[in-house]
Design a protein around this nucleic acid. Structure first.
Lengths: 194, 194
DNA sequence: AAAAAAACCGACCGATCATTCGGTTGGCCT
DNA sequence: AGGCCAACCGAATGATCGGTCGGTTTTTTT
């Protein structure tokens, strides 16, 4: 692995665990074995490094969901949505660092001054909401889903699933046993009980 | 207002807007007009100050919900739950700083080393979940709510409402128009469509 | 009014931070 | 072989950080 990629990988872990301000370039240097000068050779400053990390996070998340979308072309609407919900929870576990970064306040704070950062965040949210919405609309056509507004339902659904994923990472409560309840809630939300 | 309370008030705003590490004691000193020595006279260190702030956040949130609970003694189950959901969104707007603090990672990170911090967080979550659960159980008795597990439904419901509140504060999407959809989702979730 | 206690001040300290810079290395083109 | 450039190094720098301390003012107690 090139030194640049090693820096990016370690930065992802440090930023996700300790946050932007809690991550010291000296620590990153010690972990990767790269001199501080090397880090600043590849990234013009700490914020630029964070943006590159966020870009990688965006690309890997979008890539994972694109790939997942390929696998459920023949399912009906509600099965697609349920599949996405399950996949979202699964990803939040396997790509914990990446999800931690977009669950922290760091990127949203940076988005207020950095259009690039804001663009990355919007790409992620738009992608996720589009996927939910597409499943819902498919379901409305094939009769497996009955809601008023597909987009707004997608947002509520996303808020619910992401909220459960957060509960998991915060570890204030053990939300691992919530999977079944979440699926029931998801189904009720989309069908109105039928 | 005593200087100590002025420090606490300004600290709440700074911690919520800039985070724990992003808040400098010198800045807090400049804003409040209190010398740094005065701050450390009232709080033994930065972490202690944050814990006092979190304690105030806990007490004001718990107080608000206790007061709200008094106003809906005669309502049926689902009306209570819907009232709590609406009140939660309302509070997240009027007490934005307080909710921002518990939405940040700072307290959860501190909770890993500080039992006091963990206790505050657990108090808040337990209180909120208990309120949701109590409404659900009331609804199960009076027939307005039909779910399998009251506690788990309360968690899913909380994750959903809190997720919407976050969307509002992050301002990535305008979730202000989501109120009606959230209420529909809430009702579907609790009644299964009936 | 005297004494004790609490609140308050701000210069100061050592540590740590992001970033810079002058210099070395190693592969690639000619 | 020689020239070139990107990758790499790590000591040095100035700013900023949380926290201390000796002293003054204000409030409370006796």
């Amino acid at each position: 692995m090139s030194k640049r990629n090693a820096i990016l990988a370690s930065a992802t872990r440090l930023f996700s665990r300790n946050g932007f301000q809690g991550t010291a370039m000296a620590e990153l240097s010690a972990i990767t074995g790269a001199a501080t000068g090397t880090i600043f050779h590849h990234f013009k400053n700490k914020e630029d490094l964070f943006l590159q990390v966020l870009n990688d996070v965006k690309e890997s998340i979008l890539d994972q969901f694109d790939r997942h979308q390929q696998t459920c072309r023949d399912q009906n609407g509600i099965a697609r949505v349920e599949g996405v919900v399950a996949f979202y929870l699964h990803l939040a576990g396997t790509m914990e660092d990446q999800f931690l970064i977009i669950h922290r306040h760091d990127p949203y704070q940076m988005a207020e001054t950095s259009p690039v950062c804001r663009s990355h965040l919007e790409s992620i949210y738009t992608c996720l909401l589009d996927i939910f919405e597409e499943g819902i609309q498919t379901g409305m056509r094939d009769g497996s889903v009955a809601v008023d507004s597909p987009r707004q339902t997608a947002m509520v659904l996303f808020a619910m699933v992401d909220g459960i994923a957060r509960l998991n990472t915060y570890r204030v409560y053990d939300a691992g046993t919530l999977y079944d309840s979440l699926m029931v809630a998801c189904r009720r939300l989309l069908t109105g009980g039928r």
